[in-house]
Design a protein around this nucleic acid. Structure first.
Lengths: 299, 299
DNA sequence: TGTCATCTGTTCCCAAAACTATCAAATGTT
DNA sequence: AACATTTGATAGTTTTGGGAACAGATGACA
């Protein structure tokens, strides 16, 4: 700020007792100082200082103005400094990873909003379904769904990760609606990676427990399963965050909901390395995610 | 004022939702508004607004800044307006009269100080020992000493007006120190106008009451009597405000103090016409005089 | 769904205004 | 009487504001 405010100049004059002294301190010439004070007086239409060449007295108005305005100015500059410092301490990059589907649907939107609110922080987001080593690869945060992960990470639960068995209406019309979990052994089942047994799908009341799911598409990508399921290729056990909209629109229909454990899917968590120092920007993003991760079911 | 202006512009932008809208309201062009906001952001080194061409969002920092600074700015402008209004309502001339000696010694100094403190008021001071008609001649105030004056005026007592009989050491050495009031009949007495009897000088224990003072100089001017007394021409009954310094320095010596009524001199009053409206400036001067009229005895 | 029109913010350059410095003069103080 | 300080006028420089061209986003309309 090359240009000091009228108020700052006035205060300097009052504090140092003369125009010249204030000018020396502020790095101006005396005449410049005098002019600025004169400007202020003209703006307020009130003389603030009675000047003789040797002495300088505040008028009643000047005294009041100085007393009260000094406080206000101090508060304003304090506020500005505080905000600047705040931003400075937030500045930096956050390296963040998330699984593909979850990230695309529910991490990217709040992260974008966060970036608008905090333009000084930069975000480096990696969407992958592979489990990355946070510490080893230098990530600050990860957003993951599932059961609670290993304990070298600090976890914060954003919400529970309900998963529901479901299928497209076309498929169910053709192949019938299963009434018991065991019936799935004869259905086309779309399963994720190693989830091949009824038990893996979190059914509460299946007797055998180890009964294999019916054969069908198997893939490590949730989004691929999702697409296949919508296309009528079978029944899949999909997380609610992925299909809420489809269920609402009727593009997918839940199946065997009385037999499914709603908590079997675990939760959605933010994770961070345990040992490392937590920068303010990371804490801010964690809090922001926690605040904005509530309304998945309602959309 | 840079700080203030930037803030005002920022607030206008926030309130009206766009640079253009704010510019229309403020009478600037959009480019000027944008520039000032940019300046502010650069000064704080924090982005305050995230702009797209259609939408405009406050940053976290911006939100905080706006919230808190708005209040400070409002207070500052309110203060400035208040001070300006205050001065405006004080502006004007005060017509003031006082008796010569009292005025010169004890009215002029505080009035000058008052003028320095309130440069917007002008003062028209008439020093005269004649009693002027406040209402008829358009005076706002009078400062007078003596007994309480007529009741068409509102009076405020500034202090009591002690008067003491006294003489110069040279005179008293030569003519002796009187022990009883009656002895004054044989002294050279300097009296003011019609004060020719012992009673007029406020003695508490003189028996006759109507005993005439000794012959001597008589004059309607207190200052002339004062000068004559100091020059050793006799004994005079002079107000303390006039001779405090002389008593202190020993140039005058009190006489018959045990017989003198300290309250006989009445008081020193500020008077103003009863009926007229009391402008703020007049009230301010009255208060100021009351506050600064206390230390006559101590100088 | 795609294209277009319109509104808005940004940037550059130039003119204008404001600010500051220099110097001389007036003034009050020691 | 001498010194320090404020004040005033003038000139030079920085800052600021305006206009036009450009880019981006929204909403209408087909």
């Amino acid at each position: 700020m090359t240009q000091k405010t009228e108020l700052e100049i006035l205060l300097a004059v009052v504090d140092h007792g003369s125009f010249s002294a204030a000018a020396r301190v502020l790095g101006y010439t005396p005449s410049a100082v005098g002019k600025r004070v004169h400007q202020l007086e003209q703006r307020l239409r009130v003389p603030l200082l009675v000047r003789t060449t040797r002495r300088m007295t505040l008028t009643e108005a000047g005294q009041r103005y100085v007393e009260e305005a000094r406080d206000l100015l101090a508060r304003l500059t304090a506020l500005e400094e505080d905000i600047a410092d705040d931003a400075a301490s937030l500045r930096g990059t956050i390296r963040l990873t998330s699984s593909a589907a979850l990230g695309r649907l529910h991490v990217v939107p709040p992260v974008i909003e966060f970036m608008e609110r905090h333009p000084v922080v930069e975000i480096d987001l990696l969407l992958t379904d592979k489990i990355v080593d946070l510490v080893g690869e230098g990530f600050d945060l990860a957003v993951r769904s599932g059961t609670l992960p290993d304990s070298s990470l600090v976890s914060r639960k954003l919400m529970s990760n309900r998963r529901v068995p479901c299928g497209a209406p076309a498929y169910l019309d053709q192949h019938g609606l299963p009434q018991q979990p065991e019936e799935l052994t004869t259905h086309s089942c779309l399963h994720l990676g190693q989830e091949k047994r009824l038990l893996d799908w979190g059914f509460t009341r299946n007797q055998g427990g180890i009964t294999r799911l019916g054969s069908g598409f198997s893939c490590n990508s949730l989004e691929a399963l999702h697409a296949a399921c919508c296309a009528g290729h079978g029944i899949a056990w999909l997380p609610e965050f992925l299909i809420a909209h489809d269920l609402h629109k009727g593009r997918l229909v839940p199946v065997l909901i009385d037999h499914a454990d709603p908590n079997a899917g675990g939760g959605i968590f933010v994770l961070r390395p345990k040992a490392t120092f937590l920068p303010r920007r990371v804490r801010a993003l964690t809090d922001f995610l926690a605040d904005h991760f509530t309304d998945i079911r309602t959309d």
